[in-house]
Design a protein around this nucleic acid. Structure first.
Length: 888
RNA sequence: GGGCAGUUAGCUCAGUUGGUAGAGCACCGCCUUCACACGGCGGGGGCCACAGGUUCAAGUCCUGUACUGCCCACCA
């Protein structure tokens, strides 16, 4: 007998051992020269500052399932790991650390601060990597990358310079989103709009010619000093006479024109709009369209500038209060009402974002969008498809991408300005002198690039671009990008643009967008709400495989995941079930692998059945993973292991294992060994640790050593094992067993109490089948005796059932509740009657019989016949039983 | 305002081309059966949100309604 595993699966030691084994053996570091079709995935790089959360856990699990499966299929698999420097997020974290020391970043100065961030990264950057490893991710640690490492930084500079030279990067004064807390510009999609309660003030703008007033509605009175026009709809009769005239800005007194633009919504507010081009995105457009004056009155710290006249020096909030009060005194305030409207917040620190005009760098994504649009789904497919529309919509409405950030942590923009002649130099390396005037007084641009700029190069920069590396030719483009839909725009769309532009090829063939992980009541998990389920804690409590299986089983396409701890606990039971199935197997196998049996000629319905089922599951699981139907794959494994292999097969072979007949025992041992082996391979991508451990314990041929399951190929198909007819016959045996069990349970007979069973088969063929498999029924139904025949003399006082036309008769002896059996039969017959009526209605429907496919009609006819037969037999059995009752 | 999902057993969710409604957990019985009580066996529980339509046949396809959630958006 082989080594016996511990009774309960204890994940921790097993996980540590295998993780170490895989790392030390570089099992997942592929050679570009190795054979096999290329398969590659780049990790969505987590923030260096980050800690692993459930979103990562889901993402990494799914990618790992794909990678391990691809390896099994003989592909040459590269999974590139790495982290993102996460500009604003990381800078904020380190600033908070400094704040605890009572310092600000400006106290340190730029260089010292950046040093400090690097130092911080040295200390804490490993945490997230360890956590990725803890999840069992089969990444190639030799190819670990960081968005700010030397190679990637060089790639960033090269891309920047080339795009600049091609006119796809430009610098200019535009209105952007400004976070006064982070003190930087933000891209459009870094602003989160949230409904907030605000107020709508109505201010009077008097016409300079005294011919009247226009009342204007605003939510931001503090911008009044920056007004350079009032705008109405060109067809609005109320204001037609005012167009072209001038009005006086309240309190300020400055004269501004009344202009007309169809953009104005006549129904909203008063139908008149004040235009502040420097402090509102729409007004910026209006200002450009109508060539208005651009007057900036709020600075980047949220303080009113000198241009704000009497309000200079006040904060935005102070200015708002004062200007409202002043208008009231001046009688220029018409009213105030409450208003619910969307206000933009910084996605990193949640401060209200201020539209702000400043000099920034932009990528002309408006020019790159059409190609990115056209390539999907032609060159790259998105799963689930429903995201396609969203992708198109975003590209169709895209604006140029503001890439400069006024922070210190990140890739510094490779642009220098000559202090003497003003020449702007954009170059990959710092120039020594100005090419125009020869001056060496060159000053580099203070800004750094948006984090997503370097992320957008990730699929090729991690593989060594711009160098012509083996990795690039072997593994670019990548096979699939797996990520949450929340970064479709931030990341996926931009990677597509950059990949197309620089590699002339899409960066991935497929995009699989998975759901967001939410808590049990559907809320987004977040630290502040305190509803976070920590993956590492779950791994500690239930084991990594249980967590991974849970996430895989939940990952149905296009749906959010509501995770609860109970569910993980539930799947821990599944892991344990597998473990114990393996223990049973080991207890019943010899030291070395059992002698092979010819599966073409193998006898024994139960063997034929389980081999048949195994073939089905192999094929189905394979195609489920090919289609990214992760939940189906998990479900298939679950059901096969538990409901077929454990519940039936292991029970069915117990008598074989006790048998004196050596051939019979050895056949069972071989099939058992083979099915468990392959099942363990199938489950390995989802549950790598427990399966690797079991694999290693399974006996192998004399003189051989158990290998590493991670290197084991997917089991080849065995078409000759597909035996649908035998599998169907198995259902009769199972039906008989279940019927006896049900009778026992419902009549209060102890399951372990052995009863006699009489079978009255439907025909001779059935009788032969039953006779052949009497052993199976004897054990699983726990029978004392089993008699069968067409002319059996059954005692009247018997419980009965009908399965596939076979009458099942269990003579009742002793203190059995006879009335209970009558009730049970009645219930059974009621159900039969209901089904039969349903089928008959269908069959008596002329158009069904004539229009439905013949095979469907045939199936219904057969079913009707069977139901009628069962009813007839049960009626007779019930009548006999009633007689017995009466005789009592 | 536009777009996209979801609405199936008490709870969380499956349900691949339309063809007899499923799982896990929870619940109710019975069981110390020699792999597993993280277990076994059996059972109860559903007008598949609502209203129409297509079809011999609809949880599944179409239209509309309601509610929930998400994304996008330049109504101040």
């Amino acid at each position: 007998m082989a080594d016996i595993l511990p009774k309960g699966y204890e994940p921790h030691d097993v996980e540590v051992r295998w993780r170490t084994h895989w790392e030390e053996n570089k099992t997942f570091s592929p050679s570009p020269d190795a054979p096999g079709e290329s398969y590659s995935i780049v990790i969505p790089p987590p923030n260096v500052t980050g800690a692993l959360h459930m979103g990562h856990a889901l993402n990494l699990t799914l990618i790992d399932v794909l990678c391990r499966h691809a390896r099994q299929k003989g592909k040459n698999v590269l999974w590139v790991p790495g982290t993102d420097h996460a500009g604003i997020a990381t800078q904020n974290v380190v600033e908070r650390v400094l704040a605890k020391e009572g310092k600000k970043r400006t106290d340190l100065g730029r260089e010292a601060f950046v040093q400090r961030v690097w130092q911080w990264r040295e200390e804490y950057g490993h945490r997230i990597l360890k956590q990725i490893a803890a999840l069992g991710a089969s990444v190639d640690w030799d190819r670990l990358r960081f968005t700010m490492d030397e190679g990637l930084s060089a790639a960033v500079r090269k891309v920047f310079v080339q795009l600049y030279n091609e006119g796809l990067i430009y610098k200019g004064d535009y209105i952007i989103n400004w976070c006064s807390r982070c003190h930087t510009a933000l891209a459009d999609d870094e602003v989160e709009h949230e409904p907030s309660k605000g107020r709508l003030w109505k201010a009077r703008y008097e016409l300079t010619d005294g011919s009247g007033t226009i009342v204007v509605a605003t939510t931001r009175p503090e911008t009044i000093p920056g007004d350079t026009a009032v705008c109405v709809h060109p067809e609005d009769a109320r204001y037609a006479a005012f167009i072209g005239k001038k009005v006086r800005v309240p309190v300020i007194g400055r004269e501004v024109p009344v202009i007309a633009d169809a953009y104005v919504e006549r129904e909203f507010g008063t139908g008149a709009l004040k235009v502040t081009p420097c402090h509102d995105h729409n007004d910026w457009l209006l200002g450009s369209r109508h060539k208005l004056e651009f007057l900036q009155v709020i600075d980047e710290d949220g303080i009113m500038k000198t241009e704000a006249g009497p309000y200079a020096g006040l904060t935005k909030q102070e200015c708002r209060e004062k200007i409202v009060a002043d208008m009231e005194v001046a009688g220029l305030l018409e009213g105030v009402e409450d208003l619910e409207h969307a206000v933009g917040h910084c996605y990193r620190c949640h401060t209200v974002v201020e539209p702000h005009v400043s000099t920034q760098w932009f990528v002309a994504t408006t020019k790159m969008a059409p190609a990115a649009r056209a390539a999907v789904p032609a060159a790259t497919q998105i799963f689930p498809e429903s995201w396609l529309k969203t992708y198109y919509h975003w590209l169709d409405n895209i604006r140029d991408w503001c890439i400069s950030r006024q922070i210190w942590w990140g890739h510094r923009i490779p642009a220098w300005t000559c202090q003497d002649c003003g020449r702007l130099i954009v170059a990959e390396e710092a120039p020594d002198v100005c090419p125009d005037c020869g001056s060496s007084r060159l000053v580099q641009d203070e800004d750094v690039l948006d984090t997503w700029f370097s992320s957008s190069l990730w699929p090729f920069s991690t593989m060594g671009w711009p160098d012509d590396t083996k990795e690039l030719s072997r593994w670019y483009p990548t096979s699939v990008l797996v990520t949450g839909f929340d970064i479709l725009f931030f990341w996926v769309a931009r990677m597509i643009m950059m990949g197309q532009h620089f590699m002339k090829e899409m960066p991935f063939r497929h995009v699989y967008m998975h759901a967001l992980v939410r808590d049990a009541s559907g809320r987004k998990m977040s630290k502040s709400t305190g509803n976070v389920i920590d993956p590492l804690e779950m791994i500690n409590k239930y084991g990594c495989d249980a967590l991974r299986f849970t996430l895989t089983a939940f990952a149905a396409m296009g749906r959010d995941i509501r995770l609860s701890e109970e569910r993980i606990e539930g799947y821990r039971h599944f892991v344990n079930k597998l473990w114990n199935a393996a223990r049973f197997t080991l207890m019943n196998l010899p030291e070395t692998a059992p002698q092979a049996v010819d599966l073409h000629t193998i006898q024994g319905l139960h063997h034929q059945w389980i081999l048949h089922r195994l073939e089905c599951v192999k094929a189905e699981m394979d195609s489920a993973l090919d289609d990214y139907r992760f939940n189906d794959a998990a479900q298939l494994g679950y059901k096969f292991l538990w409901n077929e292999f454990c519940d039936w097969y292991l029970e069915l072979i117990k008598p074989d294992m006790q048998s004196e007949d050596v051939a019979r025992r050895e056949t069972a041992q071989y099939v058992l060994w083979l099915v468990l082996r392959e099942l363990v391979i199938l489950l390995h991508p989802i549950m790598p640790f427990v399966t690797a451990e079991i694999w290693q314990a399974l006996p192998v041929a004399q003189g051989q050593k158990a290998g590493d399951l991670a290197l084991e190929p997917y089991p080849a198909a065995r078409p000759h094992c597909l035996r649908p007819d035998e599998a169907a016959r198995m259902e009769l045996i199972q039906g008989v067993i279940v019927a006896v069990r049900t009778i026992k349970a419902e009549l209060g007979i102890s399951p372990s109490h052995k009863v006699s069973l009489l079978l009255h088969p439907a025909d001779a063929a059935q009788q032969a089948l039953l006779e052949e498999n009497r052993g199976l029924m004897l054990t699983l139904a726990r029978l004392e005796s089993l008699d069968m025949g067409m002319n059996l003399e059954a005692p009247k006082a018997s419980a009965s059932a009908v399965v596939q036309g076979c009458q099942i008769i269990v003579p009742l002896r002793g203190a059995v509740d006879l009335a209970g059996e009558l009730a049970r039969l009645d219930k059974e017959m009621q159900k039969l009657e209901k089904d039969l009526t349903g089928v008959n209605i269908k069959l008596s429907n002329e158009s069904f019989v004539s229009r439905a496919p013949a095979e469907v009609v045939e199936r219904e006819r057969a079913r009707a016949a069977q139901l009628a037969d069962a009813r007839e037999k049960l009626t007779a059995l019930r009548a006999r039983f009633a007689e017995a009752l009466a005789e009592e």
